[in-house]
Design a protein around this nucleic acid. Sequence first.
DNA 1: TTGAATATGTATCGATTCGATACTTAATCA
DNA 2: TGATTAAGTATCGAATCGATACATATTCAA
Lengths: 185, 185
Amino acid sequence: MSGNALYDYLERLTSLMRAWSREHPLLAELQPVQVSALHYLSRCNGYSNTPMAVTEYLGLTKGTVSQSLKVLEHKGLIRKQPDPQDKRSVHLELTGEGTALLEALTPPAFLQQAAEALGLRGEMLEALLRELLVTIQRQQDVPSFGLCGSCRFHERREEGPFCGLTRQPLASGAERLICREHESA
Amino acid sequence: MSGNALYDYLERLTSLMRAWSREHPLLAELQPVQVSALHYLSRCNGYSNTPMAVTEYLGLTKGTVSQSLKVLEHKGLIRKQPDPQDKRSVHLELTGEGTALLEALTPPAFLQQAAEALGLRGEMLEALLRELLVTIQRQQDVPSFGLCGSCRFHERREEGPFCGLTRQPLASGAERLICREHESA
DNA sequence: TTGAATATGTATCGATTCGATACTTAATCA
DNA sequence: TGATTAAGTATCGAATCGATACATATTCAA
Protein backbone atom coordinates (compact mmCIF):
# COMPACT_ATOMS: atom_id res chain seq x y z
CA MET A 1 0.00 0.00 0.00
CA SER A 2 2.92 2.32 0.67
CA GLY A 3 4.22 2.54 -2.89
CA ASN A 4 0.76 3.35 -4.13
CA ALA A 5 0.56 6.81 -2.58
CA LEU A 6 4.02 7.54 -3.95
CA TYR A 7 2.73 6.74 -7.42
CA ASP A 8 -0.32 8.95 -6.84
CA TYR A 9 1.83 11.91 -5.87
CA LEU A 10 4.17 11.46 -8.81
CA GLU A 11 1.21 11.26 -11.18
CA ARG A 12 -0.20 14.46 -9.74
CA LEU A 13 3.16 16.24 -9.99
CA THR A 14 3.42 15.16 -13.62
CA SER A 15 0.01 16.66 -14.32
CA LEU A 16 1.00 19.91 -12.61
CA MET A 17 4.20 20.10 -14.66
CA ARG A 18 2.22 19.54 -17.84
CA ALA A 19 -0.29 22.25 -16.95
CA TRP A 20 2.54 24.63 -16.05
CA SER A 21 4.34 23.90 -19.31
CA ARG A 22 1.21 24.48 -21.36
CA GLU A 23 0.45 27.81 -19.71
CA HIS A 24 3.96 29.22 -19.82
CA PRO A 25 4.30 31.67 -22.74
CA LEU A 26 7.90 30.67 -23.54
CA LEU A 27 6.98 26.99 -23.67
CA ALA A 28 3.71 27.27 -25.55
CA GLU A 29 5.51 26.53 -28.79
CA LEU A 30 7.62 23.71 -27.36
CA GLN A 31 6.51 20.17 -26.60
CA PRO A 32 7.24 18.78 -23.13
CA VAL A 33 9.56 16.14 -24.55
CA GLN A 34 11.54 18.83 -26.35
CA VAL A 35 12.02 20.67 -23.08
CA SER A 36 13.22 17.46 -21.47
CA ALA A 37 15.75 16.93 -24.24
CA LEU A 38 16.99 20.52 -23.98
CA HIS A 39 17.29 20.17 -20.23
CA TYR A 40 19.32 16.98 -20.55
CA LEU A 41 21.64 18.47 -23.18
CA SER A 42 22.33 21.43 -20.92
CA ARG A 43 23.47 19.15 -18.11
CA CYS A 44 25.47 16.39 -19.80
CA ASN A 45 29.11 16.09 -20.71
CA GLY A 46 30.81 15.68 -24.09
CA TYR A 47 30.49 11.88 -24.05
CA SER A 48 26.75 12.11 -23.58
CA ASN A 49 25.41 14.73 -25.97
CA THR A 50 24.63 12.42 -28.89
CA PRO A 51 21.19 11.44 -30.23
CA MET A 52 21.65 7.90 -28.88
CA ALA A 53 22.36 9.18 -25.37
CA VAL A 54 19.26 11.38 -25.48
CA THR A 55 17.31 8.35 -26.69
CA GLU A 56 18.43 6.23 -23.73
CA TYR A 57 17.83 9.02 -21.24
CA LEU A 58 14.28 9.72 -22.41
CA GLY A 59 13.38 6.06 -22.84
CA LEU A 60 12.19 6.45 -26.43
CA THR A 61 13.32 5.05 -29.77
CA LYS A 62 16.09 6.62 -31.80
CA GLY A 63 13.77 7.33 -34.71
CA THR A 64 11.41 9.34 -32.55
CA VAL A 65 14.22 11.28 -30.93
CA SER A 66 15.79 12.00 -34.30
CA GLN A 67 12.61 13.80 -35.33
CA SER A 68 12.34 15.85 -32.14
CA LEU A 69 15.99 16.90 -32.45
CA LYS A 70 15.38 17.97 -36.02
CA VAL A 71 12.64 20.28 -34.78
CA LEU A 72 14.90 21.73 -32.08
CA GLU A 73 17.63 22.31 -34.63
CA HIS A 74 15.19 23.94 -37.02
CA LYS A 75 14.11 26.28 -34.23
CA GLY A 76 17.71 27.32 -33.68
CA LEU A 77 17.92 25.97 -30.13
CA ILE A 78 20.61 23.32 -30.75
CA ARG A 79 23.48 22.83 -33.18
CA LYS A 80 24.96 19.61 -34.60
CA GLN A 81 28.69 18.98 -34.68
CA PRO A 82 30.14 15.89 -36.39
CA ASP A 83 32.39 13.73 -34.24
CA PRO A 84 36.00 13.93 -35.46
CA GLN A 85 36.75 10.32 -34.44
CA ASP A 86 33.55 8.43 -35.20
CA LYS A 87 32.10 9.65 -38.47
CA ARG A 88 28.73 8.01 -37.77
CA SER A 89 28.25 10.11 -34.67
CA VAL A 90 27.03 13.62 -34.01
CA HIS A 91 27.35 15.91 -30.99
CA LEU A 92 24.57 18.28 -29.96
CA GLU A 93 25.18 21.61 -28.32
CA LEU A 94 22.80 24.31 -27.19
CA THR A 95 22.95 27.59 -29.09
CA GLY A 96 22.94 30.86 -27.19
CA GLU A 97 19.24 31.06 -27.82
CA GLY A 98 18.70 27.56 -26.42
CA THR A 99 20.70 28.33 -23.30
CA ALA A 100 18.83 31.57 -22.72
CA LEU A 101 15.46 29.87 -23.11
CA LEU A 102 16.38 27.17 -20.64
CA GLU A 103 17.77 29.54 -18.06
CA ALA A 104 14.60 31.59 -18.22
CA LEU A 105 12.38 28.72 -17.21
CA THR A 106 14.22 26.06 -15.23
CA PRO A 107 13.67 25.21 -12.57
CA PRO A 108 9.93 25.96 -12.80
CA ALA A 109 9.12 28.87 -10.50
CA PHE A 110 6.30 27.04 -8.76
CA LEU A 111 8.64 24.18 -7.83
CA GLN A 112 11.39 26.46 -6.60
CA GLN A 113 8.98 28.50 -4.50
CA ALA A 114 7.46 25.43 -2.90
CA ALA A 115 10.89 23.91 -2.21
CA GLU A 116 12.03 27.11 -0.56
CA ALA A 117 8.90 27.25 1.57
CA LEU A 118 9.68 23.77 2.85
CA GLY A 119 13.15 24.89 3.94
CA LEU A 120 15.14 22.09 5.52
CA ARG A 121 12.38 19.62 4.73
CA GLY A 122 12.79 20.54 1.05
CA GLU A 123 16.44 19.57 1.19
CA MET A 124 15.48 16.33 2.87
CA LEU A 125 12.97 15.65 0.11
CA GLU A 126 15.68 16.23 -2.45
CA ALA A 127 18.03 13.80 -0.73
CA LEU A 128 15.34 11.14 -0.43
CA LEU A 129 14.33 11.47 -4.07
CA ARG A 130 17.95 11.02 -5.00
CA GLU A 131 18.13 7.94 -2.82
CA LEU A 132 15.00 6.56 -4.48
CA LEU A 133 16.57 7.00 -7.91
CA VAL A 134 19.81 5.30 -6.87
CA THR A 135 17.82 2.40 -5.42
CA ILE A 136 15.80 2.00 -8.62
CA GLN A 137 18.94 2.04 -10.73
CA ARG A 138 20.60 -0.59 -8.57
CA GLN A 139 17.53 -2.84 -8.58
CA GLN A 140 16.57 -2.52 -12.23
CA ASP A 141 19.89 -2.46 -14.02
CA VAL A 142 18.87 0.74 -15.77
CA PRO A 143 21.52 3.18 -17.05
CA SER A 144 22.16 5.55 -14.18
CA PHE A 145 23.03 8.78 -15.98
CA GLY A 146 24.74 9.97 -12.82
CA LEU A 147 27.10 12.86 -12.31
CA CYS A 148 30.64 12.36 -13.57
CA GLY A 149 32.17 13.07 -10.18
CA SER A 150 30.26 10.23 -8.48
CA CYS A 151 31.41 7.59 -11.00
CA ARG A 152 33.68 4.71 -10.13
CA PHE A 153 35.93 5.66 -13.05
CA HIS A 154 36.37 9.20 -11.78
CA GLU A 155 39.88 10.03 -10.54
CA ARG A 156 40.97 13.15 -8.72
CA ARG A 157 44.53 13.74 -9.88
CA GLU A 158 46.86 16.57 -9.06
CA GLU A 159 46.56 18.00 -12.58
CA GLY A 160 42.75 17.88 -12.36
CA PRO A 161 39.86 15.43 -12.79
CA PHE A 162 40.49 12.35 -14.94
CA CYS A 163 38.25 9.68 -16.52
CA GLY A 164 39.58 6.16 -16.00
CA LEU A 165 37.26 4.71 -18.63
CA THR A 166 38.21 6.85 -21.61
CA ARG A 167 41.68 7.51 -20.12
CA GLN A 168 41.40 11.21 -20.73
CA PRO A 169 41.75 14.31 -18.57
CA LEU A 170 38.52 16.19 -17.91
CA ALA A 171 37.78 19.89 -17.96
CA SER A 172 37.29 21.44 -14.55
CA GLY A 173 33.58 21.58 -13.76
CA ALA A 174 33.02 18.27 -15.56
CA GLU A 175 32.33 16.58 -12.22
CA ARG A 176 28.90 18.20 -12.10
CA LEU A 177 27.76 17.03 -15.54
CA ILE A 178 25.66 13.99 -16.41
CA CYS A 179 27.51 11.09 -18.06
CA ARG A 180 25.84 8.25 -19.97
CA GLU A 181 28.71 5.90 -19.07
CA HIS A 182 28.26 6.55 -15.37
CA GLU A 183 28.59 3.60 -13.00
CA SER A 184 28.07 3.90 -9.28
CA ALA A 185 31.16 3.63 -7.10
CA MET B 1 20.06 26.11 -6.63
CA SER B 2 18.07 23.87 -4.33
CA GLY B 3 14.96 23.62 -6.48
CA ASN B 4 17.08 22.79 -9.49
CA ALA B 5 18.16 19.35 -8.32
CA LEU B 6 14.55 18.63 -7.41
CA TYR B 7 13.58 19.37 -11.00
CA ASP B 8 16.40 17.16 -12.27
CA TYR B 9 15.22 14.21 -10.20
CA LEU B 10 11.60 14.64 -11.22
CA GLU B 11 12.61 14.80 -14.88
CA ARG B 12 14.59 11.60 -14.50
CA LEU B 13 11.76 9.85 -12.69
CA THR B 14 9.39 10.88 -15.48
CA SER B 15 11.73 9.36 -18.05
CA LEU B 16 11.95 6.14 -16.06
CA MET B 17 8.18 5.95 -15.81
CA ARG B 18 7.87 6.47 -19.56
CA ALA B 19 10.44 3.76 -20.32
CA TRP B 20 8.71 1.39 -17.90
CA SER B 21 5.33 2.08 -19.47
CA ARG B 22 6.65 1.50 -22.97
CA GLU B 23 8.26 -1.83 -22.08
CA HIS B 24 5.36 -3.23 -20.08
CA PRO B 25 3.42 -5.71 -22.24
CA LEU B 26 0.03 -4.72 -20.79
CA LEU B 27 0.66 -1.05 -21.50
CA ALA B 28 2.21 -1.39 -24.91
CA GLU B 29 -1.13 -0.64 -26.51
CA LEU B 30 -2.01 2.22 -24.15
CA GLN B 31 -0.70 5.77 -24.23
CA PRO B 32 0.73 7.20 -21.00
CA VAL B 33 -2.01 9.81 -20.84
CA GLN B 34 -4.63 7.10 -21.11
CA VAL B 35 -3.08 5.30 -18.14
CA SER B 36 -3.14 8.55 -16.17
CA ALA B 37 -6.82 9.04 -16.93
CA LEU B 38 -7.63 5.44 -15.96
CA HIS B 39 -5.67 5.83 -12.75
CA TYR B 40 -7.52 9.01 -11.85
CA LEU B 41 -10.93 7.49 -12.59
CA SER B 42 -10.12 4.54 -10.34
CA ARG B 43 -9.41 6.86 -7.41
CA CYS B 44 -12.03 9.59 -7.62
CA ASN B 45 -15.53 9.85 -6.17
CA GLY B 46 -18.89 10.23 -7.91
CA TYR B 47 -18.64 14.02 -8.09
CA SER B 48 -15.34 13.80 -9.92
CA ASN B 49 -15.63 11.16 -12.64
CA THR B 50 -16.78 13.46 -15.46
CA PRO B 51 -14.80 14.43 -18.59
CA MET B 52 -14.42 17.98 -17.25
CA ALA B 53 -12.90 16.74 -13.99
CA VAL B 54 -10.43 14.56 -15.90
CA THR B 55 -9.61 17.60 -18.04
CA GLU B 56 -8.79 19.74 -15.01
CA TYR B 57 -6.81 16.99 -13.33
CA LEU B 58 -4.63 16.30 -16.37
CA GLY B 59 -4.16 19.96 -17.26
CA LEU B 60 -5.34 19.54 -20.87
CA THR B 61 -8.25 20.88 -22.90
CA LYS B 62 -11.66 19.28 -22.89
CA GLY B 63 -11.52 18.56 -26.61
CA THR B 64 -8.31 16.60 -26.23
CA VAL B 65 -9.60 14.64 -23.26
CA SER B 66 -12.83 13.86 -25.06
CA GLN B 67 -10.85 12.07 -27.75
CA SER B 68 -8.73 10.07 -25.32
CA LEU B 69 -11.84 8.98 -23.43
CA LYS B 70 -13.43 7.88 -26.66
CA VAL B 71 -10.46 5.60 -27.26
CA LEU B 72 -10.68 4.16 -23.73
CA GLU B 73 -14.39 3.53 -24.18
CA HIS B 74 -13.80 1.90 -27.54
CA LYS B 75 -11.25 -0.41 -25.91
CA GLY B 76 -13.84 -1.44 -23.35
CA LEU B 77 -11.94 -0.08 -20.36
CA ILE B 78 -14.49 2.55 -19.29
CA ARG B 79 -18.25 3.00 -19.56
CA LYS B 80 -20.32 6.19 -19.83
CA GLN B 81 -23.39 6.78 -17.68
CA PRO B 82 -25.60 9.84 -18.22
CA ASP B 83 -26.15 12.00 -15.15
CA PRO B 84 -29.80 11.72 -13.98
CA GLN B 85 -29.88 15.32 -12.73
CA ASP B 86 -27.75 17.24 -15.24
CA LYS B 87 -28.51 16.01 -18.73
CA ARG B 88 -25.42 17.69 -20.17
CA SER B 89 -23.15 15.65 -17.96
CA VAL B 90 -21.72 12.15 -18.15
CA HIS B 91 -20.14 9.91 -15.53
CA LEU B 92 -17.28 7.58 -16.34
CA GLU B 93 -16.78 4.26 -14.62
CA LEU B 94 -14.19 1.59 -15.13
CA THR B 95 -15.38 -1.70 -16.54
CA GLY B 96 -14.26 -4.96 -14.98
CA GLU B 97 -11.62 -5.15 -17.66
CA GLY B 98 -10.38 -1.64 -16.86
CA THR B 99 -10.18 -2.38 -13.15
CA ALA B 100 -8.30 -5.62 -13.76
CA LEU B 101 -5.82 -3.90 -16.07
CA LEU B 102 -5.13 -1.16 -13.56
CA GLU B 103 -4.73 -3.52 -10.62
CA ALA B 104 -2.24 -5.56 -12.59
CA LEU B 105 0.12 -2.66 -13.09
CA THR B 106 -0.24 -0.01 -10.39
CA PRO B 107 1.75 0.86 -8.55
CA PRO B 108 4.65 0.12 -10.90
CA ALA B 109 6.65 -2.77 -9.48
CA PHE B 110 9.95 -0.92 -9.74
CA LEU B 111 8.57 1.95 -7.65
CA GLN B 112 7.08 -0.30 -5.02
CA GLN B 113 10.28 -2.33 -4.70
CA ALA B 114 12.44 0.76 -4.33
CA ALA B 115 10.06 2.30 -1.80
CA GLU B 116 10.11 -0.87 0.26
CA ALA B 117 13.89 -1.01 0.15
CA LEU B 118 14.00 2.49 1.60
CA GLY B 119 11.82 1.40 4.52
CA LEU B 120 11.13 4.25 6.92
CA ARG B 121 12.87 6.69 4.66
CA GLY B 122 10.41 5.72 1.92
CA GLU B 123 7.52 6.70 4.14
CA MET B 124 9.27 9.96 4.91
CA LEU B 125 9.70 10.59 1.19
CA GLU B 126 6.00 9.98 0.71
CA ALA B 127 5.08 12.45 3.45
CA LEU B 128 7.44 15.10 2.09
CA LEU B 129 6.13 14.73 -1.46
CA ARG B 130 2.65 15.17 -0.09
CA GLU B 131 3.77 18.29 1.74
CA LEU B 132 5.32 19.63 -1.45
CA LEU B 133 2.04 19.15 -3.31
CA VAL B 134 0.02 20.88 -0.60
CA THR B 135 2.48 23.79 -0.62
CA ILE B 136 2.23 24.15 -4.39
CA GLN B 137 -1.55 24.09 -4.24
CA ARG B 138 -1.64 26.76 -1.55
CA GLN B 139 0.82 29.00 -3.39
CA GLN B 140 -0.56 28.62 -6.91
CA ASP B 141 -4.32 28.53 -6.39
CA VAL B 142 -4.51 25.31 -8.35
CA PRO B 143 -7.38 22.86 -7.80
CA SER B 144 -6.17 20.52 -5.09
CA PHE B 145 -7.90 17.25 -6.02
CA GLY B 146 -7.40 16.09 -2.43
CA LEU B 147 -8.97 13.17 -0.64
CA CYS B 148 -12.57 13.64 0.45
CA GLY B 149 -11.80 12.93 4.10
CA SER B 150 -9.29 15.81 4.33
CA CYS B 151 -11.72 18.43 2.96
CA ARG B 152 -13.06 21.31 5.01
CA PHE B 153 -16.60 20.30 4.00
CA HIS B 154 -16.16 16.76 5.27
CA GLU B 155 -18.23 15.92 8.36
CA ARG B 156 -18.00 12.80 10.48
CA ARG B 157 -21.55 12.18 11.67
CA GLU B 158 -22.88 9.33 13.73
CA GLU B 159 -24.73 7.86 10.73
CA GLY B 160 -21.55 8.02 8.63
CA PRO B 161 -19.49 10.49 6.54
CA PHE B 162 -21.31 13.54 5.18
CA CYS B 163 -20.47 16.21 2.56
CA GLY B 164 -21.30 19.73 3.78
CA LEU B 165 -20.98 21.17 0.26
CA THR B 166 -23.50 18.98 -1.56
CA ARG B 167 -25.39 18.32 1.71
CA GLN B 168 -25.50 14.62 1.06
CA PRO B 169 -24.47 11.53 3.02
CA LEU B 170 -21.45 9.69 1.65
CA ALA B 171 -20.84 6.00 1.17
CA SER B 172 -18.42 4.49 3.66
CA GLY B 173 -14.96 4.40 2.09
CA ALA B 174 -15.60 7.68 0.28
CA GLU B 175 -13.09 9.41 2.56
CA ARG B 176 -10.24 7.82 0.63
CA LEU B 177 -11.38 8.98 -2.83
CA ILE B 178 -10.22 12.00 -4.78
CA CYS B 179 -12.72 14.88 -5.04
CA ARG B 180 -12.53 17.71 -7.58
CA GLU B 181 -14.34 20.05 -5.16
CA HIS B 182 -11.79 19.45 -2.43
CA GLU B 183 -10.70 22.43 -0.33
CA SER B 184 -8.05 22.19 2.36
CA ALA B 185 -9.27 22.45 5.94
C1' DT C 1 42.57 -8.03 -45.01
C1' DT C 2 38.37 -9.24 -46.25
C1' DG C 3 33.58 -9.86 -44.92
C1' DA C 4 29.91 -10.33 -41.56
C1' DA C 5 27.88 -8.36 -37.66
C1' DT C 6 27.00 -4.33 -35.12
C1' DA C 7 26.20 0.70 -34.16
C1' DT C 8 24.68 5.56 -35.27
C1' DG C 9 21.62 8.17 -37.41
C1' DT C 10 17.81 9.35 -40.84
C1' DA C 11 13.42 8.75 -43.62
C1' DT C 12 8.75 7.32 -44.00
C1' DC C 13 4.18 5.55 -42.53
C1' DG C 14 0.11 5.19 -39.67
C1' DA C 15 -2.08 5.79 -35.17
C1' DT C 16 -2.46 8.98 -31.58
C1' DT C 17 -2.03 13.29 -28.91
C1' DC C 18 -2.93 17.93 -28.54
C1' DG C 19 -4.71 22.79 -29.04
C1' DA C 20 -7.88 25.67 -31.50
C1' DT C 21 -12.19 26.45 -33.23
C1' DA C 22 -16.86 25.72 -33.96
C1' DC C 23 -20.93 23.54 -32.69
C1' DT C 24 -25.06 21.21 -29.95
C1' DT C 25 -27.57 20.73 -25.97
C1' DA C 26 -28.79 21.85 -21.38
C1' DA C 27 -28.72 24.65 -17.17
C1' DT C 28 -28.66 29.13 -14.95
C1' DC C 29 -29.79 33.62 -14.04
C1' DA C 30 -31.39 38.19 -14.71
C1' DT D 1 -38.63 34.66 -21.49
C1' DG D 2 -34.14 35.40 -23.30
C1' DA D 3 -29.13 35.91 -22.78
C1' DT D 4 -25.28 33.83 -20.83
C1' DT D 5 -22.74 30.08 -19.24
C1' DA D 6 -21.39 25.17 -18.97
C1' DA D 7 -20.60 20.17 -20.61
C1' DG D 8 -19.50 17.61 -24.16
C1' DT D 9 -18.43 16.40 -29.12
C1' DA D 10 -16.55 16.98 -33.93
C1' DT D 11 -13.05 18.44 -37.03
C1' DC D 12 -8.59 20.23 -38.57
C1' DG D 13 -3.62 20.72 -38.67
C1' DA D 14 0.86 20.17 -36.37
C1' DA D 15 3.55 17.21 -33.68
C1' DT D 16 4.76 12.85 -31.07
C1' DC D 17 5.71 8.14 -31.21
C1' DG D 18 6.79 3.22 -32.53
C1' DA D 19 7.85 0.26 -36.31
C1' DT D 20 10.22 -0.58 -40.26
C1' DA D 21 13.51 0.09 -43.60
C1' DC D 22 17.64 2.12 -44.98
C1' DA D 23 22.55 4.34 -45.51
C1' DT D 24 26.88 4.78 -43.59
C1' DA D 25 30.62 3.74 -40.54
C1' DT D 26 32.93 0.81 -37.15
C1' DT D 27 34.34 -3.51 -35.13
C1' DC D 28 35.65 -7.99 -34.91
C1' DA D 29 36.57 -12.55 -36.33
C1' DA D 30 38.06 -15.65 -39.80
